[in-house]
Simulated assay, not measured.
Amino acid sequence: MSYSSFFGRSRDADFSMFSASHWIALASVLVVCLLLFGCRFALRTRRRLRLSVRLLLAVILLSSEAGLQWWYISQGIWKTDSSLPLELCGLTVLLSAIMLLTRSRILYAFLYFAGIGGASIALLTPNLVYPFPHFRFLLFFISHGAIILASLYMTWVEGFKPSWKSLAFTMLSLNLTAACVWVANSMLGSNYMFLMRKPSTYSVLDYFGPYPYYLLVEELFAFVVFLCMYLAFFWLPERVRSRNQRMNRLPY
């Protein structure tokens, strides 16, 4: 493999969604998530190991964004209307690193939903043109996988939990963020967060109707995804646990 085919701007082929390399990348992210889940008890009892994992994840997140910016500059294509970290996943990369370094519950309340939900959708339908083993392909899946791992770490190891207030806070924060990014788009002539038009590659937005209606459908879709994330992984298990505890206290 030549340097240009790994790192260069040009490419011989385009990324193919749900190709073998895409499935392998998704499976790799899933395996690492399961490994973190399996190690959660060991991490809880080892302070230095917890700190090492938090710092490692933060370094991966910050390095992925630095690597992306370095690639833009090295290829002579860095532009204010396309290279700033103003996409949702670009923002959550940086916020996830800060959350890990500071153990911020406020950032966690936002990132559990927006980070995991947004990165998961991005992994399933990547806005990506470079195929494996290009640098951009590897960077995309590493950074988005690390976003998910950051919030899962805070949940499984540090014991953080979202709440109904977290869901409302996330929706409010997303709308405020979108408003700020819309202003930036208007000033820069950009399309960050796809607020001005849909991406050129296939995405879930293709099912949400034309502009600007897809923005409203996207917000409803985000709310439903976040709601399911809370109900399935927190509200329902807690209800089942409480019910079992009540049943165990009943006299026979």
Score class of each variant (00 low, 15 high):
Leu167Ala: 05
Leu167Gly: 07
Ala168Arg: 12
Phe169Cys: 04
Phe169Asn: 03
Phe169Pro: 01
Thr170Met: 15
Thr170Trp: 07
Met171Gln: 11
Leu172Ile: 12
Leu172Phe: 10
Leu172Trp: 07
Ser173Asn: 02
Ser173His: 02
Ser173Cys: 11
Leu174Thr: 05
Leu174His: 02
Leu174Ala: 09
Asn175Arg: 07
Asn175Gln: 12
Leu176Asn: 02
Thr177Tyr: 06
Thr177Leu: 08
Thr177Val: 09
Thr177Cys: 13
Thr177Ile: 08
Thr177Arg: 04
Ala178Ser: 04
Ala178Thr: 01
Ala178Glu: 03
Ala178Met: 02
Val181Gln: 00
Trp182Asp: 08
Trp182Arg: 06
Trp182Gln: 04
Val183Trp: 11
Val183Glu: 08
Val183Tyr: 10
Val183Leu: 15
Ala184Ser: 10
Ala184Tyr: 00
Asn185Leu: 10
Ser186Ile: 07
Ser186Cys: 11
Ser186Leu: 12
Met187Ile: 15
Met187Arg: 11
Leu188Thr: 14
Leu188Gly: 12
Leu188Gln: 13
Leu188Phe: 12
Gly189Pro: 05
Gly189Tyr: 06
Gly189Met: 04
Ser190Asp: 09
Ser190Arg: 04
Ser190Pro: 09
Asn191Ile: 06
Asn191Ser: 02
Asn191Val: 02
Asn191Pro: 06
Asn191Thr: 04
Tyr192Phe: 14
Tyr192Asn: 07
Met193Trp: 07
Met193Asn: 04
Met193Thr: 04
Phe194Ser: 14
Phe194Trp: 15
Phe194Asp: 14
Phe194Gln: 11
Leu195Phe: 08
Leu195Cys: 08
Leu195Ile: 06
Met196Ser: 15
Met196Asp: 08
Arg197Ser: 15
Arg197Asp: 14
Arg197Gln: 14
Lys198Leu: 09
Lys198His: 13
Lys198Ile: 11
Lys198Phe: 11
Pro199Val: 15
Ser200Arg: 03
Ser200Glu: 13
Ser200Cys: 03
Ser200Met: 10
Thr201Val: 10
Thr201Met: 04
Tyr202His: 02
Tyr202Ala: 08
Tyr202Arg: 01
Ser203Asn: 03
Ser203Leu: 00
Ser203Gln: 00
Ser203Lys: 00
Ser203Cys: 01
Val204Glu: 10
Val204Ile: 15
Leu205Tyr: 15
Leu205Met: 14
Leu205Cys: 13
Asp206Met: 01
Tyr207Ser: 13
Tyr207Asn: 07
Gly209Trp: 05
Gly209Ser: 07
Gly209His: 04
